[in-house]
Amino acid sequence: MDATDEMYLMVDSDLLVRLMQRTGTGSKVTVRELAEAAGVHPSTIGFLRTGAQRTAPRHTALAIASRLGVDSLVLWAPVGRSVPAPDGEAVAV
């Protein structure tokens, strides 16, 4: 698996919701705006917000963190030996 296949696990879906209310610049970001910035469908952001989806590919995770104005490790943990993927979720795209 190379870095482009790497998956990231969201540490706290409630934190995503809070960060969307007040980004690093102090502004609010909508589900649609965040989805557009990350290059995903808005339902993906909705699933991440509710915890129905807990992993995302590296490029998506980094784009979400960047748009929110936080370091990626504030919101995500790379899936690997020390951070296993949740049961039932794929580890590669």
Score class of each variant (00 low, 15 high):
59 H>Q: 13
11 V>D: 06
6 E>R: 15
74 V>H: 07
24 G>D: 04
68 L>R: 07
81 R>Q: 08
74 V>I: 15
7 M>I: 05
90 A>I: 08
50 T>Q: 09
12 D>I: 05
2 D>H: 14
37 A>S: 14
18 R>G: 00
36 E>R: 14
20 M>I: 08
29 V>Y: 00
74 V>Q: 10
20 M>C: 09
41 H>V: 09
2 D>G: 15
83 V>R: 01
39 G>V: 11
28 K>V: 09
2 D>E: 15
36 E>K: 13
65 A>L: 07
90 A>P: 00
26 G>R: 04
19 L>Q: 02
13 S>M: 04
15 L>V: 07
85 A>I: 05
53 Q>P: 03
20 M>K: 12
67 R>E: 13
19 L>G: 00
27 S>G: 08
7 M>L: 10
78 P>G: 01
91 V>T: 15
60 T>K: 08
65 A>T: 06
58 R>E: 10
26 G>W: 05
33 E>V: 03
70 V>N: 08
3 A>H: 13
51 G>W: 12
5 D>A: 14
74 V>P: 01
77 A>I: 02
48 L>A: 11
71 D>Q: 12
34 L>Q: 07
92 A>F: 10
89 E>M: 06
46 G>A: 08
53 Q>C: 03
14 D>M: 09
50 T>H: 06
72 S>K: 11
53 Q>H: 11
14 D>P: 00
8 Y>F: 15
54 R>V: 07
64 I>P: 04
80 G>S: 08
77 A>N: 11
21 Q>S: 14
56 A>L: 12
2 D>Y: 11
45 I>R: 03
